[in-house]
Design a protein around this nucleic acid. Sequence first.
DNA 1: TGCTTCTGTGAATAAAACTTCACAGAAGCG
DNA 2: CGCTTCTGTGAAGTTTTATTCACAGAAGCA
Lengths: 220, 220
Amino acid sequence: MIEIMMVDDDQDLRESVAEVLSEAGFAVTEAGRGEEALEHLAHKNFDLILLDLIMPGLSGLELMGRIREKSPRMPVIMITAFASVDNAVAAMRQGASDYITKPFRIDALLASVGRVLEEARFDSCMTSLDLDTVLSCLSNPLRRQILAHVEQEGGLRFMDICRKLELTDHTKMNFHLKILKEADFLDQDDNKIYLLTSLGTQVLGCMRVLMKKLAYSTIS
Amino acid sequence: MIEIMMVDDDQDLRESVAEVLSEAGFAVTEAGRGEEALEHLAHKNFDLILLDLIMPGLSGLELMGRIREKSPRMPVIMITAFASVDNAVAAMRQGASDYITKPFRIDALLASVGRVLEEARFDSCMTSLDLDTVLSCLSNPLRRQILAHVEQEGGLRFMDICRKLELTDHTKMNFHLKILKEADFLDQDDNKIYLLTSLGTQVLGCMRVLMKKLAYSTIS
DNA sequence: TGCTTCTGTGAATAAAACTTCACAGAAGCG
DNA sequence: CGCTTCTGTGAAGTTTTATTCACAGAAGCA
């Protein structure tokens, strides 16, 4: 069950959003104040936090700072009645995953929640995924480039990949392609075109998230 | 000399900004269209790009996408006449470093440029943020265990770690500790106790997310 | 058909990562 | 002090990973 916390001082809004999210299959915890939110955070693990920017007591931005201390990578969607560009930029700079202005359509909120959770998500069919294989496979920059190019082009033939990476020695390429195939990141279709497997796609997604998190960690 | 590219279809604005930046000691390259900007990018390395959001031909967002393909970490400041929250959020989600609305005060622009460059400088001096190092460091299960134990105990001495991992050969441990130290995941305090650095903590956090999702997927 | 490019394999070699060994100063303790 | 444990270094050796080389069938094309 995915755990979401909704922090807003407006009780009506809070409850109606909580209801919609519950209907959508999420477990929702409500908080009317920043201090209350921190309290919840200490006792429970959340997958996503919805945060009102302007609240009495701790403001949304301040609260986000506190959340970042404890959970630097917690996905946060910022919500506000005042659609200020400065606020939006400040929130995003602090690492908010998205920014929504009131009044908002409930489907827009759900879309945002879905997208953010998707970004934060590391796959659901990773049963074959053993950490050693994945990490050692990804630890080679050439292989990462191969994956990136194949993803970007949606599918490439052997020689296309060689040329893209400006690799004259095709056997070297073959060596790495073999590893990627054995790790089940890549596969070939009937026309011998190399395609990402679903695992490959998901792992690439993870990588992107990792890079983003790492980049974020330097700023904070 | 710091290289900045200014991309804007408004020639007057472009030139006046270029002049100000030149006076401030930057080397400025101008581009009136997205295609031209890509051309410049192919032949020169920039430290920062100023990008008009709305231009004929390639839009600022599209152009940023193209820039990201080639230079995923390139700092980009987005500039626009239309102060829309949606645009701002979209730009920041795509990884813009800052977002400025026209008309802007020139000192505000300079402030933004200075701040973004500062962030980028900090970023590039964190060598261990390099994905190669991080991933190859993590690809060794023993090193992951070391990190996990140090985090769990909040700090351990050399022999503590050896015993925890039931490693009789201490030089082997030393080898891996050295790598972790060089990658800036671990450090030693005055009492020679090994502690996680902030980077180490962050990276472990990422790992935990990965493991959690793994466990999640096996259950469901 | 003959020629070229594409795709691939397996063995040999080089390079990197890892482990083990030999040794040594520092710290603690009787 | 003498003895032991802790912490560490550097070099030698082993294993794993990566690259290069030699060769070959399949596909495309003049």
